[in-house]
Design a protein around this nucleic acid. Structure first.
Lengths: 230, 230
DNA sequence: CCGACCTTGTTCTCTTGTTCACAAAGTGCC
DNA sequence: GGCACTTTGTGAACAAGAGAACAAGGTCGG
């Protein structure tokens, strides 16, 4: 009987939410948690929680719930959080600098290990304890520091080239902040954070609501409406 | 024959990508574009592009393609980008300050109109041309400045309260950067940007790849692997 | 004016994801 | 030890989304 190790993408994206929730309740001294409670705290459906957790092969106890510590161990292991993943930030402009200074990464297993930029006037300067290296040095930097994840924080125009260079240097996990469509070969994993997109989506639903409410004002009808996201 | 005005959520999230792509090609002087080409530039499937665009009721011309200008007008209208959406950033820490200074919002119809914080030592100070106001002033600020969108950039602990206050003040579009689960009433729209989550998802797939490649090394097999996101 | 060619719009099928509902399994009181 | 109660794990129904395929509609050269 072979282990069914194919975790759906949607589930993978929820595991970090469960993880964070579990860390919270663990801090509060909770040792056991039901799918119902976890669902409530994580903002999802209880059945979904159970199904998601079942992919981990992690067993809860019927009539009781899940052991928080055990679940955390399983989940951390599955997510690969038992080791550090050194991150390189490419593009030290406004956003890149903010990310470099953020600091919220290191304690969570994603230490910022390198800052990269293509601007010669920036190269050599220091930020948050790191000397900015030139984009051309990327392969060396990746090698020296064991970079596992690349964060693209360049303007849109440079994003694809940076992605290509990252992949060429052996970095197969990339997080793109640039407002541009970037593609990577199948071996690599790319995720994106797109501020403008998020705002425009909000605009879309906001407009709906506005139309709705002005209509409602006119008609004197009570509200009812859209929800999405989180 | 009633207009079929229900645009799927997945489509809504792609419209901004098409929009950006179309603006790019428009700059290059392109006046007509086929679904095939648009799909290539936007990194999606051509059939998906056609289906998405058909929701706009926007007609292309068979044998020719879509008129870029016309498509842009339709799309901007549908996304509600014909007006400005003043944004309030709540939480002027590292991230909040970076967002305030970013500036990439204003020119795209999302002017940062207010900065809010709960820390009395920050209130009254100026950043990027805005005086930081106290969280308690939120209702007044929203009213005065016509705030349409709230960005939560506080620590996790304060996020839910800020969301509640935003909604209470009449802001129904919220973008949450705090690493916390936040819920809003149905009338409101919430979207989230979760750095830690993205990195952990990359970690998950990265680990797979690593396992895969060490396995491949051992076995001398050629590569094949996971891709997700963008 | 016709025919070859192109590209859209849409239907159909398949896959992925969500939710319900319930049997199986364990706890703890009496 | 047995029984009432709780909660998991999962099968099955349902919903949403992706992609292939193709007919309908339009262009353009001759």
């Amino acid at each position: 009987m072979e282990r069914q190790r194919r975790i759906p993408e949607a589930t993978v994206a929820r595991l970090p939410v469960y993880l964070r929730t579990l860390l919270d309740v663990q801090t509060d001294g909770v040792t056991t948690i039901s799918s119902e409670r976890l669902a409530e705290l994580a903002g999802v459906n209880a059945a979904k929680v159970r199904k998601d957790l079942s992919y981990l092969g992690s067993f809860g106890t019927r009539g009781v719930g899940y052991d928080v510590d055990h679940l955390l161990v399983q989940m951390s292991r599955e997510l690969g959080l038992t080791r550090d993943w050194p991150v390189a930030i490419v593009g030290v402009g406004n956003l890149g600098a903010a990310l470099a200074n953020y600091g919220g990464f290191g304690d969570r297993g994603f230490p910022v290990a390198a800052l990269i930029d293509a601007d010669p006037t920036k190269v050599g300067t220091t930020l948050g304890g790191h000397t900015i290296r030139h984009l051309d040095d990327l392969p060396a930097v990746v090698n020296e520091l064991g970079i596992a994840i690349g964060i693209i924080a360049t303007p849109a125009a440079g994003a694809q080239e940076v992605a290509d260079r990252l992949v060429a240097a052996g970095v197969t996990s990339i997080l793109n902040f640039a407002p541009a469509v970037v593609t990577v070969p199948e071996q690599a994993t790319l995720r994106k954070v797109d501020l403008a997109l998020e705002l425009q989506v909000l605009s879309f639903y906001g407009q709906r609501d506005s139309i709705g409410s002005s209509l409602r004002e006119e008609l004197g009808v009570s509200a009812e409406s859209t929800n999405s996201g989180a």
